[in-house]
């Protein structure tokens, strides 16, 4: 299984995502520059965190117009996997691959901590190694993670079981319905504010993010008979 981790000017969690794939799965993973237009050799694309283009104007807005995002849309349309983490989630909403927007945290400050998430949907390619309702500890680090969508969209997300993670206990940013991560209707594109790639070793404070990578690998394996 081959992973791509996109690199935009200003990405800063790209290396962490590469290391997580290597450490957890040992599968091949490439850093892919934002000017690339062909992602056909990859099975899973990670849009990493950071401050692409400084988050100037709106977070994710400039990156969403990069050449590589055209290829990401094709990749998603082909049913292959896409994960946007933190800034990557913001880029995916700006691109229109996921509904809604991420607004400034309600307390207006950047917030970095290990937060508790509830796994709401374990039927996705990204979460099938978790138990439904399981509470996991995954770091967050963002200033604009306050998920918002209109009521019709929220109703739709619920009806299609697209809410994948919610904050358990304290909501760190004021997101509607405590949403921490959602997927698209087909279930192959996931966006989440928390950083699973930061939770892959006990030394880092949590290893609860590992199951996300193993889920992806298992799904791919089942599909490809590996």
């Amino acid at each position: 299984m081959r992973f791509a981790v996109l690199v935009f000017p200003g990405s800063n969690c790209d290396i962490d995502a590469v290391k997580a794939v290597e450490d957890v799965l040992g599968e091949p993973v490439d850093s892919v520059w934002h000017t690339e237009t062909d992602l056909s050799q990859y099975d899973c694309v990670i849009v990493p965190g950071g401050f692409s283009y400084g988050d100037y104007l709106r977070s994710g807005a400039v990156a969403s117009l990069s050449p590589v995002m055209g290829a990401v849309k094709e990749h998603a349309a082909a049913g292959k996997l896409v994960i946007g983490i933190c800034n990557g989630f913001q880029i995916l909403t700006e691109t229109g691959l996921l509904p809604g927007v991420l607004r400034h945290n309600d307390h207006l400050q950047f917030r970095c901590e290990i937060s508790e998430l509830r796994v709401e949907n374990t039927d996705t390619a990204f979460t099938n190694d978790y138990e439904k309702g399981q509470v996991i500890r995954i770091p967050i680090a963002h200033g604009e993670g306050n998920y918002f969508a209109d009521q019709a969209t929220i109703d739709q997300l619920k009806a299609n079981n697209q809410i994948v993670f919610t904050y358990h206990g304290t909501n760190p940013n004021g997101s509607i319905e405590n949403i921490a991560g959602i997927c698209n209707e087909q279930g192959n594109v996931l966006g989440m504010m928390p950083h699973p790639e930061r939770a892959v070793h006990e030394l880092l404070g949590s290893a609860d993010g590992k199951a996300m990578f193993t889920s992806i690998f298992r799904t791919w394996g089942e599909k490809h008979g590996a």
């Binding site: 969690c13 290391k19 400050q109 970095c112 680090a141 950083h195 930061r198």
Partner: peptide, 8 residues
């Protein structure tokens, strides 16, 4: 308010 975990 500081991202103290980036670079893992």
């Amino acid at each position: 308010q500081y991202d103290y975990m980036v670079r893992t």
